[in-house]
Design a protein around this nucleic acid. Structure first.
Length: 272
RNA sequence: CAGCGGUAAUCA
């Protein structure tokens, strides 16, 4: 079972969701009993694929093996239902869970943000505080996403201040969300300032400011940032290239866009 | 007793 688990878990972690599910089916055909780790992998793969039947089966198997709704299994099942859009089921699981932690709350909060149910999302944040849990970097990312979406720079600034007070600011997820929030609210100066004062960076973080420049029509700044990424050896992914190519197109420079498209493939990044 | 395992930020 441990061998099967590591196979299934490995597939699911690396985005091979179909393979993970196939492995699970094979394991059951062999007559082996899945453990909690098996089911967590299956639920994660089903959530990412939108595989409703497989995930429901996972839920059923968990129940039949008495693996109920502890905080990890419960959150995993909750994640599955919310990712496949069965929000009522997700809410039901949430209400039945006795042991909720930050992840449990974050799951429902981010679902509401995805569904644009902003008031519900913010209500959940308040309830989370009332339940004596503190916002973590993921909660803050959800709140900042609400600010980006609704162009609410006032709330965004509060979230920014909160992140500094509570030492969440060094987390790159939070820093990216803050840069994105300021940019979407039209505050490019603030976005840049946050960018420059962040030390823990990754590709998504750089992509966020790159996207902001392109959206603002500042193609020169975008290209400068793009080449600066290469200078500091920050890996560039398909999003990086998509944004730059789109920037060239918006700038009316089709030849440059085509050139970038071929450079992308030379860099070993297949188009998506 | 400890570890592992569940959520998250950028373009399309």
């Amino acid at each position: 079972v441990v061998t099967w688990n590591s196979m299934i878990f490995g597939y699911a972690q690396n985005g091979y969701n179909e393979e993970a599910i196939d492995m699970f089916v094979e394991m059951r055909l062999e007559g082996l009993e899945p453990s909690d780790v098996t089911l967590l992998s299956l639920l994660s793969a089903s959530a990412n694929l939108g595989a409703v039947e497989e995930g429901k089966q996972g839920h059923g198997v968990a129940l039949s093996f008495g693996l109920g709704l502890d905080r990890i299994m419960g959150s995993s099942i909750l994640n599955f239902y919310s990712k496949v859009g069965l929000i009522d089921e997700a809410e039901l699981v949430f209400s039945k869970m006795l042991d909720k932690d930050e992840v449990t709350w974050n799951l429902l909060i981010s679902s509401y943000v995805r569904l644009q149910q902003i008031d519900k999302a913010l209500d959940m944040c308040r309830s989370m505080r009332l339940a004596n849990l503190k916002f973590d970097s993921v909660t803050l990312a959800s709140i900042l996403a609400v600010c980006s979406h609704s162009r609410n720079v006032m709330l965004g600034k509060e979230a920014h201040a909160y992140s500094i007070r509570n030492n969440l600011y060094p987390e790159v997820v939070v820093a990216s969300s803050i840069v994105d929030m300021y940019a979407k609210c039209g505050r490019m100066g603030d976005a840049r300032q946050v960018f420059d004062s962040t030390t823990n960076t990754n590709t998504i973080f750089w992509n966020t400011l790159l996207t902001a420049y392109v959206e603002a029509g500042h193609i020169g700044e975008a290209l400068r940032l793009f080449y600066q990424m290469q200078l500091v050896s920050k890996p560039q992914d398909v999003t990086t290239w998509n944004v730059v190519i789109m920037g060239c197109m918006r700038n009316g420079d089709v030849d440059e866009a085509k050139y970038m498209f071929s450079k992308m493939q030379c860099a070993g990044i297949p188009p998506n």
